[in-house]
Simulated assay, not measured.
Amino acid sequence: MGAPTDHRIVVESAEGEPLIVSDADGFVLEYTHSVEKTPVIETYERRGESLVMTRMEFSSYGAGLPSTADVNTTENDTFVFQPNDSTEELYVKPGRIAGHEIRFGSETYDLVALSDAETVRIYVTTRPTIFHTSSVWV
Rank of each mutant, 00 (worst) to 15 (best):
P39H: 12
V21K: 11
V21P: 02
I20W: 02
D6K: 15
A3I: 01
P94Y: 05
F27E: 02
S59H: 10
S135F: 05
N76T: 08
E15M: 06
E15Y: 08
T43N: 08
P4V: 12
K93E: 11
K93Q: 13
L111R: 11
V124Y: 05
P18E: 09
A117M: 06
I122A: 05
Y123A: 10
Y109G: 06
K37D: 09
T5D: 11
I102Q: 07
S86F: 01
M56E: 05
A3T: 06
A117W: 02
K37M: 14
K93H: 11
G64P: 02
D6P: 00
S134K: 15
D85T: 13
E107N: 12
I97R: 15
Y44F: 15
D23F: 06
T87I: 03
T78E: 03
I130P: 04
H100A: 03
L51T: 03
H33Q: 08
E88T: 12
E36P: 00
D25C: 03
V28T: 15
V80G: 06
E17Q: 11
M53C: 10
L51D: 00
L65T: 07
E36C: 00
S59M: 09
R55G: 00
T54L: 08
P83G: 10
V52M: 07
D110P: 02
S67R: 13
S115T: 05
P66Q: 08
L65G: 10
L29N: 08
P39R: 15
E75N: 14
T5P: 01
T74L: 14
D116C: 01
G99N: 06
N72W: 06
D110C: 03
P4W: 09
S135L: 00
T125D: 08
T32N: 07
E57P: 01
R96L: 08
E17H: 10
F81G: 09
K37L: 15
F79R: 14
S22D: 02
E57D: 13
S22P: 04
E12R: 15
V71M: 09
G16Q: 09
A3P: 00
L19M: 10
E42K: 13
